[in-house]
């Protein structure tokens, strides 16, 4: 597709310490088209958040180090931007929603001030206008504008997350990185927040990278899905590809772990074992140790990602 807003090519990020090198992200590639939502799904520690931070160029250094790869945003490589240029992109063009709304807001400033701060940072508005815009944004996410003068501790978790969303969308970004926006919320609030994100995304025509470990959320919100495992994208495709033609054994395992209302199962089939230590990844397929189809040839050599149908990519020996 020509109108890709974000294209990641071969991104590799490691955390290097004196003791070990943690290979958090290993050569991942993905694309997000304008107005499209991509769900990045994986277990804890699969490198999802590191990927998002990598896009923002906010990987903590030290110990984080971007080893290689390109992040092409609107035709320009973000890796080649200066820190100053990145600052004007962050929050303005690309913004991020953090996992835990409880800690993502500054406790000593009012929420209205914090939203206005982002607006004033990127748009040439007077303090008064920025505050009015901040109130508008709050109304937009369903919180009374009159509460702009309150402090974060006076809001509930769901409301805080909505304020974080208002902050992220305040400058009308073209790409939104949502890092598990609903993990810290209970299920009913989760639904509200997801609806809100979905509506606002359509309203502003924003593209989104939704990081989550909940396949249900992905089915609801996203157009495309990337399944991430131990720093690699093991399967990538549209919703139909992933949900109806599940190909990679790991993805199959993920679906096997979800209770199904339509069929009667006595026991779920979890994936056996644990994710490999990212500081000590095995040769060959990273999933081989837990894979029910693993053969000897899986444990050596370099895997290639294969397109098994148009737009459906799988990284597995079974399909090579």
């Amino acid at each position: 597709m020509a109108n890709n807003i974000l294209e990641i090519k071969d991104l590799t990020i490691h955390y290097v310490t004196d003791q070990e090198t943690v290979k958090a992200v290993n050569g991942i590639s993905l694309q997000i088209a304008e107005g499209e939502s991509l769900g990045l799904v994986g277990e804890t520690g699969a490198g999802k958040t590191t990927t998002a931070l990598g896009i923002m160029r906010l990987v903590p250094d030290p110990p984080g180090r971007v080893i290689g790869g390109e992040i092409i945003y609107k035709g320009e490589d973000l890796m080649k931007k200066s820190e100053h240029e990145m600052r004007s992109i962050r929050g303005h063009q690309i913004s991020m929603i953090f996992q835990d709304p409880m800690t993502a807001l500054n406790p000593v400033e009012t929420v209205g001030y914090q939203i206005a701060e982002v607006i004033r940072l990127h748009q040439n508005l007077s303090k008064r206008d920025a505050e009015l815009k901040a109130m508008e944004m709050m109304e937009l996410v369903g919180i009374e504008g009159a509460r702009a003068g309150e402090y974060p501790h006076q809001f509930s978790g769901g409301m805080k997350q909505r304020i974080v969303i208002a902050m992220a969308l305040a400058c009308d970004p073209s790409l939104l990185l949502a890092d598990e926006p609903t993990t810290a919320l209970d299920v009913t609030i989760q639904e509200q927040v997801l609806d809100l994100i979905d509506n606002l995304k359509k309203q502003f025509n924003t593209s989104m990278l939704l990081i989550t470990h909940d396949l249900g959320i992905v089915a609801e919100v996203c157009d495309k899905v990337a399944i991430m495992y131990a720093g690699e994208i093991v399967e990538y495709g549209t919703l139909e590809h992933i949900y109806n033609n599940t190909s990679h054994p790991y993805t199959q395992g993920l679906f096997g772990s979800i209770p199904n209302f339509n069929s009667k199962t006595h026991r779920l089939k979890p994936i056996k074992g644990l994710m490999p230590d990212p500081a000590n990844l095995p040769d060959g397929c990273v999933f081989a140790d837990r894979c029910p189809h693993a053969k000897d040839e899986c444990r050596s050599g370099k895997l290639v990602t294969k397109e098994i149908e148009p737009g459906h990519l799988v990284r597995c020996r079974l399909f090579e």
Binding site: M86, S88, F98, T103, A104, E117, V118, H122
Partner: peptide, 17 residues
């Protein structure tokens, strides 16, 4: 190391700010 500092970075704030 609080998350709101990281969040502030993600909104494009400079170190001084």
């Amino acid at each position: 190391d609080q998350e709101y500092i990281e969040a502030a970075r993600a909104t494009g704030a400079s170190d001084f700010r």
